[in-house]
Design a protein around this nucleic acid. Structure first.
Length: 464
RNA sequence: GACCCGUUCGUCCAGCGGUUAGGACUCCGCCCUUUCACGGCGGCAACACGGGUUCGAAUCCCGUACGGGUCGCCA
């Protein structure tokens, strides 16, 4: 598969100073960060969070965020793998200033197309006698073997002794190894700040050795904590919520996901959590990043989503909600949705919960929730209430909110009960559920006939 | 195994030598409310352990334990 975009238009989004950016001596102070995923066919939340932090830092500094695809033909590359990554990034709103589809002055942005850069720098190392070739043709880098200090923006100063075997940088078939291409690309692309997962901290000495062997100053490093499963295990592909595309499919709001992800390992240091993107950008910086791994909590993400949902204006919410109902294939008239959906804005945290919650609007009958039934059973007056309600409702000539209200009032009066005490049984009878939209609207929307049928069915079920 | 990083309520995040250890999610209770929610108020719940240093440690140092990571001709 040919990679699209790398030859695409050179959209220059950056201001002065950028043109010289390849100079690794960093004469320019423009911050340049990058996210460098492999096209594995899905965007992991951990990767998304890494991308987010890079993006945030670039935006915070007014620098550039580069997207580079590490597709050095591996078995891990799959068809459409790149598309999924790009879509995930776009969905989250992490727009890149240079990279696939938009190009830039430091391309190509696919490692598979950068062989000449690697060859060039290998020659430099060869000329300095810093590499050697084994019998089979593999090339190794001669480690100086001296201790290397990593001055990490998150982990602090970490010293490594260097007694590992010399790393291989090129295979016998001429292809290059990760550590080498990663360093060369960062160098050639003028990356000033490498923000990546903590799993790379131990690799960093190798990278620093390479930069120094090439006579270059290494970038600034910041190794961020990892995201783990709730049980503390490493989050992998199949784990719940591991893939960004899941969130898009379940109709989460990107803002909510971004807000949640930003707070996983980073803190603005006050007690606020619901933050606008602009606020996050403004406050994001290395001192706010903590060092310990975090575990992913879907429940809390849902809360963030619920908060964002409530913050949506009428129209935005409606479009979002109705789309979720439509994709579910429900058969409910729009007129009904117009009445019901707005009432659900504060009652769901994700719009994809909607279809299940309003399923009772479909058909003549409804499923009875077992918890609702249990609550009903606790009240020995449930039957009497339902019967009184049924009688009053049946006797109603017109069918609107006022009439229904009056009917419930009269039923309450006949039993000498407060109206509120009758509303729960009525709700269960009509919708089968303990919670939901406003009772009066439910009854209006359902229509008298279905309501009567459902009341009778519940009464029968209760063995009245 | 060697090396590296980490360890505050179940979870996320504050705290950076003196606090009744704070906020958020979850859960529970109360209030508001004709119902359901929203909202408000309150509650349960934590400094891994052992030594130091100090008048005084969640905060600094050293161990131990536990968790994670890296040691590839994967990225």
């Amino acid at each position: 598969m040919k990679h699209p975009g790398s030859r695409a238009g050179r959209k220059q989004r950056l201001q002065a100073g950028d043109k010289e950016a390849p100079s690794p001596t960093m004469s320019s102070s423009t911050v340049r960060t990058r996210f460098a995923p492999s096209p594995t066919g899905y965007l992991h939340v951990g990767g998304a969070r890494t991308a987010l932090f890079n993006w945030l830092y670039a935006r915070h500094c007014g620098g550039a965020f580069v997207l580079r695809i590490e597709d050095t033909d591996r078995n891990r590359n799959i068809d459409d793998g790149i598309e999924v990554i790009l879509q995930g990034m776009q969905w989250l709103g992490l727009e890149w200033d240079e990279g696939p589809e938009i190009g830039g002055d430091h391309g190509p942005y696919f490692q598979s197309q950068r062989q000449s850069f690697y060859d060039k720098h290998l020659e430099v190392l060869q000329s300095k006698d810093l590499v050697y070739t084994e019998e089979n043709g593999a090339v190794r880098f001669k480690s100086p073997g001296k201790p290397v200090l990593v001055d990490d923006q998150v982990c602090g100063r970490v010293e490594f002794t260097r007694d590992e075997p010399d790393m291989t940088i090129r295979r016998p078939d001429g292809s290059y190894i990760f550590h080498f291409v990663n360093v060369i690309d960062d160098l050639e692309m003028g990356i000033t700040h490498v923000i990546r997962g903590e799993d790379h901290l131990s690799n960093t000495p190798k990278h620093i050795e390479l930069f120094e062997a090439l006579g270059q100053t290494p970038p600034t490093y910041a190794h961020i904590p990892l995201i783990l499963n709730p049980d503390g295990s490493k989050m992998s592909k199949r784990d719940l919520g591991a893939s960004v595309s899941d969130y898009a499919e379940k109709a989460y709001l990107p803002d909510a996901v971004v807000n949640y992800l930003a707070l996983l390992g980073w803190s603005p240091k006050d007690d606020r959590e619901l933050l606008a993107l602009s606020e996050i950008i403004e406050r994001f910086d290395f001192p706010g990043i903590n060092k310990s791994n975090a575990s992913f909590d879907l429940i809390k993400l849902n809360w963030f989503n619920g908060q964002r949902l409530m913050g949506l204006d009428e129209n935005a919410y409606w479009e979002h909600a109705v789309a979720a109902v439509q994709t579910s294939g429900m058969d409910v008239p729009e007129e009904t949705l117009r009445k019901i959906l707005p009432l659900m804005q504060t009652k769901v945290s994700i719009v994809s919960e909607l279809p299940q919650k309003i399923a009772f609007l479909q058909g003549d009958h409804c499923d009875l929730d077992s918890n609702a039934l249990k609550k009903l059973a606790k009240d020995d007056q449930s039957n009497a209430k339902l019967e009184a309600l049924l009688q009053a409702l049946e006797a109603t000539a017109s069918w609107d909110e006022a009439a229904i209200d009056a009917a419930i009032d009269s039923a309450a009066a006949s039993l000498e009960q407060k109206k509120g005490k009758l509303m729960f049984p009525a709700r269960v009878a009509a919708s089968g559920q303990a919670g939901g939209p406003d009772l009066f609207i439910i009854l209006v929307v359902l229509g008298k006939e279905r309501v009567v049928v459902r009341f009778r069915e519940l009464l029968a079920q209760l063995g009245a």
